[in-house]
Nucleic acid binder design. Structure first.
Length: 442
RNA sequence: GCGGUCGUAGCUUAGCUGGUCCAAAGCGCUUCCCUGUCACGGAAGAGAUCGUGGGUUCAAAUCCCAUCGACCGCGCCA
């Protein structure tokens, strides 16, 4: 008999079905046993009655996480046993036969309980089975799909950026080295250069993939491998075109989340933010003046924002501007990568900035330099050797439109949407300073 | 890398102004009882050299030092 998914059982009342999944809980009443069965679609209560002696015998030996295939009749529950407002609360399975597909050892922790992050991470193949953990990644799937679908609708072409690269994308020292047939290659820190090259091919492109940062950070918002949602678009007027595109992407993502993930957000007591028609934006210097005026702390000489300032600005945006999001633009060009476009109307400052969301930076975006000579000069100013970027520069030598783009940190976005305290909870298998799965323990 | 906090049963924690702690609770586990439970319930039981090493003391889970590990904060960034 073909397998029926648990969420569809109410279409089969009075009929016999086969359900396959995990034993979520067993409640042994002595002469009868209750099971909660779980598959990818949901949970259902199954009851093994005393007259089904063979099934009862198996049921009494079952334990949580055993994998079973059960043939059963779908019954309406007796009136007094109906559970309102839960999936399948009005039905239950009367088990006829149980086939054990796989046994499970005793779990090393309690599924569904609050675990220390350390325990959670050391047992990911199991802890990911928790309802909340699964909810995180359902939400993440919806975010990625919404990002893709929206951009495809806007004429963007998706491409897979290489992860093995020959030269550090941004000239930084924070890339992982890889032995490559006697040469040193690197793991990509960003698809940046390839995105720009692809603008010369398709005008509008995006890429969703992992990037790697060899930074020894130890915080709740950093991963050494994270997923970057990247887009790059040609023929822009300036960086505000990119800001508008991100504004619309985020509006689409939150719309999809509202339609598809209400249950998941409820699990976390999280609210899906409203994306304003126009996300407020201010220059770094304006933001610093506000910080100085409101807190008395003078950071106006700083080239960047400290985390505490980012948190403050988000609170400010929420309270004064009624937005969970705020763009901070025009950072000093000296602190930005070589390809960043300098604002001719505000010399020394970048045509671009960061997007802050619920206390944290989730995006960096900018217009890029598209003129070959300017780009080469900018590299030299940063102490980079244009010769090493020949591959990239070819695109610019032969006609590149004005363009710009952004990178959006998927795990940070997911974590902030759901109110997770650590981005590691928003990455399936997070890599950090001390941990690649459990293979780095010495 | 620096700073802070912490490390007690499989998990989550209490105890930590030194003795009454050869360490306690909930969950999990084992055995038994239970025909309507839904985090089922009831009875009994097993399970910890209190991260590791050293020190102070008549006496250390508790105080001191070192070390390892984790988490949080910072730098850097998404």
């Amino acid at each position: 008999m073909t397998r029926t998914y648990i969420k569809n059982l109410n279409e089969h009342i009075g009929k016999e079905v086969t359900v396959a999944g995990w034993v979520d809980v067993r409640r042994d009443q002595g002469k009868m046993v209750f099971l909660d069965l779980r598959d990818m679609s949901g949970k259902v209560q199954a009851v093994v009655l005393p007259n089904h002696t063979l099934a009862l015998d198996v049921a009494q030996r079952l334990r949580p996480e055993w994998v079973v295939s059960v043939s059963a009749q779908v019954n309406k529950r007796p009136e007094r046993n109906v559970k309102a407002d839960v999936l399948n609360g009005e039905i239950e399975l009367e088990v006829l036969n149980i086939e054990v597909l796989s046994k499970a050892k005793e779990l090393p922790f309690e599924l569904g309980a609050e675990l220390n992050l350390d325990t959670y991470l050391d047992n990911l193949p199991l802890t990911l089975r928790e309802e909340k953990a699964r909810a995180v990644f359902k939400v993440q799937t919806v975010i990625v799909h919404a990002f893709r679908n929206f951009l495809v609708g806007e004429g963007f072409t998706e491409f897979q950026a290489p992860k093995l690269i020959g030269e550090d994308a941004e000239g930084g020292a924070n890339s992982f080295n890889v032995e490559y047939f006697g040469h040193t290659a690197h793991l990509a820190q960003s698809p940046q250069l390839y995105k720009q090259i692809m603008v010369g091919v398709f005008e509008r492109v995006f890429s969703t993939g992992n990037v790697y940062r060899a930074e020894k950070h130890s915080t709740t918002r950093h991963l050494n491998e994270y997923t970057s949602l990247d887009l790059e678009m040609g023929f822009i007027k300036d960086h505000t075109d990119v800001m508008n595109m991100e504004n619309r992407v985020l509006a689409h993502i939150t719309k999809e989340l509202k339609e598809k993930c209400a249950t998941e957000f409820a699990l976390f007591g999280a609210t899906i933010p409203e994306v304003p028609a126009k996300i407020p934006a201010m220059k770094l210097r304006e933001a610093q003046e506000i910080i100085k005026k409101e807190t008395g702390e003078d950071c106006t000489k700083e080239p960047d924002l400290e985390p505490a300032h980012e948190r403050f600005l988000c609170e400010y945006a929420k309270k004064e501007l009624n937005s969970d999001f705020i763009f901070i633009t025009h950072f000093p060009i000296s602190k930005r990568p070589f390809y960043t476009y300098e604002d001719e109307n505000d010399p020394g400052y970048a045509k671009g900035g960061d997007l802050l969301f619920r206390g944290i930076e989730i995006t960096t975006l900018a217009q890029r330099i598209h003129d070959y000579d300017t780009l080469v000069q900018s590299m030299k100013n940063k102490g980079l050797d244009p010769e090493k970027f020949r591959f990239y520069l070819q695109a610019f030598k032969y006609g590149m439109p004005p363009h710009g783009g952004l990178g959006l940190g998927l795990e940070r976005l997911t974590a902030k949407f759901l109110g997770l305290e650590n981005v590691k909870r928003a990455a399936l298998f997070p890599r950090d300073l001390n941990r690649i799965d459990n293979l780095l323990s010495e």
